[in-house]
Write a protein that binds this DNA or RNA. Structure first.
Length: 431
RNA sequence: UGCUCAGUGGCACAAUGGUACUGCGUCCGACUGUUAAUCGGAAGUGUGUAGGUUCGAUUCCUACCUGAGCAGCCA
């Protein structure tokens, strides 16, 4: 007899199979019981008919508790009365691991309770669907960048200095000296681009900002591609192609999960249609003013502004060439203007905010040295970075995508803490 | 950090200045197609912490703790 996963049930119709599963819920009447099963691949139900299995098996079925681990033997049937379209007519049940007083009941629970039980909550349908889609985004990311000729180059997580200076960092002890958890791999990616042409980093990132919003985590995963011999315009084309590729792969591979989440595929399809609109920062300010926003040229946009801009276009939109004063020191000066840099943020629709930040990097040694000093950063700490401009400096561009922001947006989830297995936020370090 | 809101049995909620409703879960029973199944019965603990007002506080007041939402910061 064959052991199968639930997701493959369609290929085993009318066959007798064995499935290792957990019981998510159970309903029973006097002569028939429905066991709601999950095995990590999908969810479906087992039907236990007393007249067919006999007293003993039927009684066992009725005694099983929520989250009991069982081996189920039975015959797969196609059946429209099952949400999954298929179900298993159970002939035999073996209880492998019992369960008692499982805390997450079939009724609704509060966020705090569910996050306290995150280690168990991961078993349930919504986290299941989101984590499967997260996995697809990770898989598709590797596929995309490998296909495009990138080399994955890992940036260090422990660093000796603050790459962007301004942001708060987690500090830790490194054999008697201060070390910081990485808040970006960007500068290291630039070193990689000068070595291997096109590289991407993909790893955890830490921000000790006391942010308390649905878009922030203190620990999150970031994908940071960096490309030598590449202008910002060329980088934008890669960025939109990458985003469209991610969305398309989720549509192609996660129809089941999107259905569990009740996510509208037609909306997602719009996000695969290129190009994405590009709006200059100048024009964005004008557009916002025309729509009643109280903004002045030179300020960074807040969440309400970002939401308005992205919803205005119903697609992800690039906001290009931000004021120099509000952006990082390494961004390239605009060729004909002194007040803006060659940069772009990609704003996701539906209020999900900035999912990509990127720019062309300045290539000039003296200019970068000045800007590092201007921002009060330690020249000694950045000497290695300046070396990249001393030895064969070339035009190059890069960007960073926040994985959890992308997951939250594509899955249509309310809060970013749902987009990572064990979220770290201002008020949560456990489990 | 600021503003706003909230803290009641394992969970989710209700309530009046007079020691607390209901549902889920649990236990017992019924039911041949359920979809957070339904129906009948039972057990269980007690209003975040510390003060104050009051004959009496879950309710009113003060402080604190914890959490949530929003804002700032950013991905």
């Amino acid at each position: 007899m064959q052991k199968i996963n639930i997701i493959d049930a369609a290929r085993h119709v009318e066959e007798e199979v064995e499935i290792g599963a957990w019981l998510t819920n159970k309903r029973s009447s006097g002569k028939i019981a429905f066991l709601q099963l999950r095995d990590g691949s999908a969810f479906f139900q087992g039907v236990v008919v007393k007249a067919k299995v006999g007293e003993e098996v039927f009684e066992l079925a009725k005694e099983l508790k929520q989250e009991a681990a069982i081996k189920v033997v039975g015959i797969i049937h196609e059946d429209k009365r099952s949400h999954f379209g298929y179900e298993i007519e159970v002939t035999k049940i073996i209880e492998i691991g019992s369960s008692d007083e499982y805390p997450i009941t079939p009724k609704e629970h509060g966020t705090d309770f569910l996050m306290d039980h995150r280690h168990l909550y991961l078993r349930h349908q919504k986290p299941f669907a989101i984590m499967k889609i997260r996995n697809e985004l990770i898989r598709a990311t590797y596929e995309f960048f490998n296909k495009e000729g990138f080399t994955k180059l890992d940036a260090p997580i422990l660093t000796g200095s603050a790459p962007e200076g301004t942001t708060e960092l987690f500090e830790t002890d490194y054999f008697g000296q201060s070390a910081y958890l990485s808040q970006t791999g960007q500068l290291y990616a630039e070193a990689g681009a000068m070595a291997y042409g096109k590289v991407f980093t993909f790893g955890p990132t830490f921000r000790a900002e006391k942010s308390k919003t649905r878009r922030h985590l203190t620990e999150f995963w970031m994908i940071e591609p960096e490309m030598a011999w590449t202008t910002q315009e060329e980088s934008l084309v890669i960025q939109e192609k990458y985003i469209a590729f991610l969305v398309q792969n989720v549509i192609d591979h996660n129809a089941y999960e999107l259905k569990l989440l009740d996510r509208d595929i037609d909306i997602l399809r719009k996000y695969t249609q290129l190009p994405f609109p590009r709006l200059s920062y100048d024009d964005a300010v004008t557009l916002l003013k025309d729509n009643g926003f109280d903004v002045e040229w030179g300020v960074d946009f807040g969440s309400p502004e970002e939401t308005f801009l992205a919803n205005h276009f119903e697609k992800p939109v690039f906001i290009i060439n931000f004021p120099k004063a509000i952006k990082a020191f390494y961004m390239k000066r605009h060729p004909s203007r002194d007040d803006v840099v060659v940069s772009a943020d990609l704003l996701a629709p539906e209020g999900y905010g900035e999912i990509i930040g990127g720019s062309e990097r300045d290539t000039d040694y003296e200019y970068l040295k000045e800007r590092i000093e201007e921002q009060g950063l330690s020249l000694a700490e950045y000497q290695w970075y300046l070396d990249l401009r001393q030895y064969g400096s070339v035009p190059h561009s890069g960007f960073g995508l926040g994985l959890e922001r992308a997951v939250t947006w594509i899955t249509g989830t309310e809060h970013i803490r749902e987009a990572i297995p064990f979220p770290r936020t201002l008020n949560r370090l456990r489990p």
